[in-house]
Each structure stands twice: as structure tokens, then as C-alpha cells.
Deep mutational scan, measured.
Amino acid sequence: GKELVLALYDYQEKSPREVTMKKGDILTLLNSTNKDWWKVEVNDRQGFVPAAYVKKL
């Protein structure tokens, strides 16, 4: 099944490779191999968020 993460904080994208999320959002985790930036999918968009801003559910 898909792995989900919870947004712990708001995050505003700073580049086209990133995505914006709001605290409390549930996101689909696509890739967590990089310890600093995790790739997630939110609202049919894929991009990176800081790993410290999310936690695995």
C-alpha cells in the first residue's frame, strides 16, 4: 500500500520542484531516500518537502 505522511508545519514551496502543504495535511510519500527532502504527492502534484516538516503515519 501507499505510505502516508502527516504535515507537522505549513510549508510554502520555494522552487518548482517543491510543493506547498498545510499543517495537518496527509500526503502520499513517494520517496524518502534523501534524509533532508522527501518526495510527496499532494492534490495530484508531486514534489519535495523538507523531511523535518513531515512524519510517517
Rank of each mutant, 00 (worst) to 15 (best):
Y53R: 06
L57A: 04
W38L: 04
A7H: 01
P16A: 13
G24A: 03
S32D: 15
P16Y: 09
Y11L: 01
D44C: 13
E18K: 04
E41F: 07
T20Q: 05
D44E: 13
L30R: 04
A7W: 02
K2P: 14
L27T: 01
T28V: 15
L6P: 00
G47R: 02
G47W: 04
W37P: 00
K39M: 15
N31L: 10
D10L: 02
Y9K: 14
L4Y: 15
K14Y: 05
K35S: 13
W37C: 06
E13I: 06
K2Q: 11
Y53Q: 05
K14N: 11
S32V: 07
V42F: 15
K35L: 10
A51P: 05
M21H: 00
Y11C: 02
L29T: 01
T33R: 11
G47H: 02
E3H: 12
Y11P: 00
G47I: 04
L8H: 03
N34C: 10
D10I: 02
F48Q: 03
L57T: 06
E41C: 13
I26P: 01
V40C: 06
D25L: 05
A7S: 06
Y53V: 06
L30P: 00
V49C: 03
W37N: 02
V49L: 03
L57W: 09
K2Y: 13
Q46L: 08
G24K: 02
R45L: 07
T20D: 04
K56P: 10
V19M: 13
K56H: 08
L6I: 15
E41R: 10
P16C: 09
Q12G: 08
V40W: 00
Y9F: 13
K22S: 09
G47V: 05
W38A: 03
N31G: 07
A52F: 09
K55G: 08
G24R: 02
M21D: 00
L29I: 05
N34H: 12
Y11D: 00
G47Q: 02
E13T: 09
D36F: 15
Y11I: 01
K56G: 05
L6A: 06
A52L: 11
V5P: 00
L8Q: 04
G1W: 13
N34D: 15
S32R: 08
M21I: 14
L6N: 02
V42Y: 12
G1A: 14
D36L: 14
K55C: 15
K2V: 13
E41L: 10
M21K: 00
L27A: 08
N43F: 14
T20I: 03
R17T: 11
N43T: 10
K55A: 13
F48S: 03
V49I: 09
G24Q: 02
V54G: 01
A51G: 04
A7G: 03
N34T: 06
L6W: 07
G1F: 14
G1P: 14
V19Y: 04
W38K: 01
N43E: 13
A7Q: 01
L57S: 04
D10R: 03
K35G: 09
D10E: 06
K35W: 08
K2S: 10
V19W: 05
S32C: 12
Y9D: 07
M21N: 01
K2T: 12
Q46S: 12
G47E: 02
R45N: 05
G1L: 14
N43Q: 13
L30D: 01
S15K: 07
T33A: 13
Y53G: 06
S15Q: 08
L27C: 10
I26D: 00
F48T: 03
L29M: 04
V42L: 15
K56E: 06
K22L: 09
F48L: 09
V5Q: 00
K22H: 10
T20Y: 05
R45V: 08
V49M: 02
S15D: 11
Q46I: 14
Q46W: 09
D10T: 07
D44R: 10
K2W: 11
V5W: 08
E18S: 07
V49A: 03
Q12I: 14
Y9A: 12
K39W: 15
P50T: 02
T33V: 10
L29C: 07
T33D: 15
Q12P: 06
S32P: 06
L4I: 09
Y11Q: 00
V19N: 04
Q12H: 14
V54W: 01
K39N: 07
T33L: 10
Y9C: 13
L4C: 11
G47L: 05
K22Q: 10
V42K: 15
N31Y: 07
G47N: 01
V5N: 01
K56V: 12
G1R: 13
E13G: 15
K35Q: 11
Q12N: 14
P16Q: 10
K14V: 08
E41T: 08
G24V: 00
L27V: 07
L27N: 01
I26A: 03
K39S: 08
L27I: 07
Y9G: 05
D44N: 13
L29Y: 02
N34R: 10
Q12T: 14
R45Y: 05
F48M: 08
E13F: 07
K23P: 03
A7I: 03
K55I: 15
N31E: 14
E18G: 13
L6T: 07
R45T: 07
P50A: 02
K14G: 08
W38V: 06
M21G: 00
A51D: 02
N43K: 14
V49S: 01
R45A: 06
E13H: 09
K56W: 08
L27D: 00
D25A: 08
W38D: 00
V42M: 14
D25N: 07
D36M: 15
T28C: 09
G24W: 06
D10G: 06
I26M: 07
T20W: 05
Y53D: 03
K2H: 12
P50R: 04
V54D: 00
N34V: 05
A7M: 02
E41Q: 14
K55F: 11
P50Y: 03
E18H: 07
I26L: 09
K35M: 11
L6Q: 10
V54N: 00
V19S: 02
F48D: 04
K23M: 08
V19I: 15
K14I: 07
N34M: 09
K23Y: 05
V49E: 01
D36Q: 12
K14S: 10
